[in-house]
């Protein structure tokens, strides 16, 4: 259990995908204007991350590696993710229309989200087994959610005071500066794993 706790805490707080690994920056900056869209997007990302890992890990370990085809990793993974996103969209539309109404608009954005492809590749780079990979994926998704939700709060304050900001600094620059400050606060978590478990 200790290993899982370490992986989970590292993924959510220490190696936060957005604020320390710079994965998934586009949705972080693009969809974080309102709390509900930030939350919806991160639920969709977490969901796809978990499913993508559940699909790519066995395919890599049991098909690509034994057949000596591991060089197809990138191409196979991105196709699996694209197909998965399509499939989820169709399935949600048909069976859970209420969820589709909430998450549907975010799904197509996820195919080209580097956080999803990133987590599937990093799971293998880190040498995680299947369960560890799933824990890491869900943790990374939750970390993404935490960053998105917190940042949407920060952003609403920033956007409310736009007229007090120098003209050249309005919009994207001030948003990035706010992200930098959020990122500083997450740096406080580095070393927490060592402190808690060693």
């Amino acid at each position: 259990m200790k290993e899982f706790a370490i992986i989970l805490i590292s993924a959510v707080l220490v190696n936060n995908y957005v604020l320390s690994k710079f994965l998934g920056i586009c949705p972080f900056l693009g969809v974080s204007k309102k709390l509900d869209s930030a939350f919806g997007m991160s639920v969709a990302v977490t969901f796809v991350m978990a499913l993508a890992t559940a699909a790519t890990w066995p395919i890599y370990m049991y098909i690509l590696v034994p057949k000596d085809l591991s060089y197809l990793q990138t191409i196979v993974f991105i196709l699996i993710i694209a197909a998965l996103v399509q499939f989820i969209e169709i399935a949600l539309k048909k069976y859970i229309p209420s969820l589709h109404a909430a998450l549907g608009i975010y799904l197509p954005l996820i195919t080209t989200n580097c956080a999803v492809l990133g987590v599937t590749i990093l799971n293998l780079d880190e040498g995680y087994n299947f369960v560890e990979s799933m824990v890491n994926s869900i943790g990374s998704g939750l970390g993404f959610m935490l960053a998105m939700v917190l940042f949407s709060g920060v952003r609403s304050r920033v956007d409310a005071s736009t007229d007090k900001i120098p003209k050249a600094y309005q919009g994207i620059p001030i948003t990035l500066t706010a992200a930098a400050i959020c990122s500083v606060s997450f740096m406080g978590f580095t070393g927490i794993v060592d402190g808690l478990f060693h």
Binding site: L19, S20, F22, K167, A168, Y169, G171, I172, P173, I174, T175, L176, T177, A179, A180, I181, S183, V184, F186, M187
Partner: peptide, 25 residues
């Protein structure tokens, strides 16, 4: 570190904004 990345990127975009009087972005 990570914050420096966000900060420098923000500064650079602001600089481009300023030098082009906001026309470029």
């Amino acid at each position: 570190l990570a914050p420096g990345g966000f900060l420098v990127f923000g500064f650079l975009i602001a600089a481009v904004n300023y030098l082009t009087k906001g026309k470029a972005i």
